[in-house]
Computed example of a mutant assay.
Amino acid sequence: MAQEESSVSHSVLVGASPQEVFDLLADPRKHPIIDGSGTVRGELRAPDRLSEGAKFGMRMKRGVPYRITNRVVEWEENRRIAWRNLLPHRWRYELEPEGAGTLVIETYDYSRVLPGVLSRTRVPTENLNSIKATLHRLKAHFERG
């Protein structure tokens, strides 16, 4: 785990190729499968496959149901994808080939959202816990077949 003042991240080695992992991340309909936060309920509006600049709506629930629109703000095929909503913080996945698998690094980057203020809240710790749970589910998804 790496924890900085403006981001939290965690990594896991997954028994799948970078392309297989990226294909899953680039399909918003599959995000509920790996969501470790328990908030993602399903896609609302989304292209079949995300791309740089693509927008996708998701049904969410944290206490009460709500909808959110995300936009892909970083994109490098089979290497990196990140999105954000109205606020400038980002959820980023970076993929590095490692042996027969892929090292997946997920980061919640809040460097653009008053990091000094946000780092004094529970948000970074809660998001780190969600990241760990998401990566566990991602790994299990590929290892189950």
Rank of each mutant, 00 (worst) to 15 (best):
M1C: 01
A2M: 03
A2G: 07
A2T: 14
Q3I: 10
Q3E: 13
S7K: 13
V8L: 06
V8I: 12
S9T: 08
H10Q: 05
S11C: 06
V14T: 09
G15A: 14
G15C: 04
S17D: 04
S17K: 14
P18Q: 12
P18C: 07
Q19S: 15
Q19G: 02
F22I: 02
F22P: 02
D23Y: 00
L25V: 05
L25W: 08
P28F: 04
R29W: 01
R29M: 02
K30A: 07
P32M: 07
P32I: 08
P32L: 10
I33Y: 08
D35H: 04
G36Y: 07
G36D: 07
G38P: 05
T39W: 02
R41S: 01
G42Q: 06
L44D: 11
L44K: 13
A46H: 07
P47K: 10
P47D: 10
P47V: 09
P47L: 09
D48E: 15
R49I: 05
R49A: 12
S51N: 11
G53S: 13
G53C: 12
A54K: 12
K55I: 01
F56D: 07
F56H: 15
G57D: 14
K61P: 00
V64L: 13
V64N: 03
P65E: 11
R67A: 04
R67M: 02
R67S: 06
R67T: 04
I68D: 04
R71K: 15
V73H: 03
V73W: 03
E74F: 00
W75G: 09
E76G: 05
E76W: 01
E76Y: 00
E76V: 07
E77P: 02
R79T: 06
R80Y: 00
I81C: 05
I81K: 09
A82H: 09
W83S: 05
L87P: 00
H89D: 13
R90G: 01
R92G: 00
E94W: 01
E96D: 08
E96R: 13
E98Q: 14
G99W: 04
A100D: 14
A100I: 01
A100W: 00
V104L: 09
V104C: 08
I105N: 12
I105A: 09
I105R: 15
E106M: 13
E106I: 09
T107R: 15
Y110E: 07
Y110T: 06
Y110Q: 09
Y110H: 13
S111G: 15
S111F: 04
V113L: 15
L114M: 12
L114G: 02
G116N: 11
V117Q: 02
V117A: 13
L118R: 06
S119D: 09
S119M: 12
R122K: 15
P124Q: 12
T125F: 13
T125H: 14
E126N: 14
N127W: 11
L128E: 14
N129W: 07
S130E: 11
I131R: 14
I131K: 13
K132T: 06
T134W: 08
T134A: 09
L135D: 05
L135I: 10
H136I: 03
H136P: 00
K139T: 05
H141T: 07
F142I: 07
E143L: 03
G145Y: 02
G145M: 03
